[in-house]
């Protein structure tokens, strides 16, 4: 199929898709007139029932907790899948230096990490980790939660890498430790849910004390605990995922990649 024919076929398909879309959107309630019964009901009941003032977290970690277990395991599986797909192929070995073999072969002149970048990145490590930690532990009160906090926590580690310290990055985030943290985060979430079952309650039932007043850090029972566990799992998963991709730039040999790509383009 030529690119031109493909583009024509796309134009026909896209026109049909847009027509169907607009037809479907015509049946939606107008923007700003959401009539759904579910959302307003939760808005009314969530604070009395859970003492959480962050209703999105209450939905995520309590009302829809069962879905979030699945969601977390999607991330878990993705990290595991990446380790499988990016496993060391036969003949590949890791370089000791910090620059990529592709740059070397193409005779690219790679500037060393500048002092400005190094200092800026290292100065940001602490505050970034603190914000990530704060977000992961305040899901019950503010717009935050384990997923957001975990990603920001992971980026604190990325800053170490960015500052040119790839050796320090590897030492800070040993794969074995990350595997354990990830498994504990994901398994802990399921264990919190199963502990409810052990008490004869429904899976993921909020059985912990809800605390005195809505909006307190100690309030909301299992919501805060689950959010924290999710934060650990997500941080470990993202460090693993980025670590796997970063490691690829330091591999040499194997495959037929990149180097013999003369004059194609």
């Amino acid at each position: 199929m030529t690119p031109k024919l493909r583009l024509w076929l796309f134009a026909i398909g896209a026109a049909g898709l847009v027509a169907c879309y607009l037809w479907a959107f015509g049946g939606l309630p107008g923007f700003g007139n959401y009539p759904g019964p579910y959302g307003p009901e939760i808005l009314k009941d969530a604070i009395p029932q859970t003492n959480a003032t962050g209703i999105v977290s209450a939905v995520n970690f309590d009302y829809r907790g069962f879905d979030t277990v699945g969601e977390e395991f999607i991330l878990f599986t993705a990290a595991a899948g990446m380790s499988v797909v990016l496993r060391r192929l036969r003949g590949e070995r890791q370089q000791e230096q910090d620059h990529s073999p592709a740059d070397e072969v193409m005779h690219r002149n790679v500037a060393p990490t500048s002092s400005a970048l190094r200092v800026a990145a290292l100065v940001l490590v602490g505050p970034t980790a603190l914000i990530g930690w704060w977000l992961a532990t305040h899901a019950q009160t503010n717009p935050s939660g384990g997923f957001q906090g975990g990603v920001i926590l992971a980026s604190a580690f990325m800053l170490v890498y960015l500052s040119g310290e790839s050796i320090a990055f590897r030492r800070l985030s040993p794969v074995d430790l990350l595997d354990v943290a990830e498994a504990m985060g994901a398994g802990g979430f399921a264990a919190v849910g199963l502990a409810a079952v052990a008490q004869g309650l429904p899976f993921l039932y909020n059985y912990l004390p809800l605390g005195g007043s809505p909006g307190a850090v100690s309030s909301s029972g299992t919501i805060a605990l689950i959010s924290f566990l999710v934060g650990i799992e997500v941080a470990a998963a993202f460090i693993l995922i980025t670590g796997e991709l970063l490691e690829q730039t330091l591999l040499r040999g194997g495959g037929r990649g990149g180097r013999q790509k003369e004059g194609s383009g």
Partner: peptide
């Protein structure tokens, strides 16, 4: 307030 359920879905 706006619907929190769809916001949680967006997070997923």
């Amino acid at each position: 307030a706006v619907d929190p359920v769809v916001q949680a879905l967006a997070l997923t």
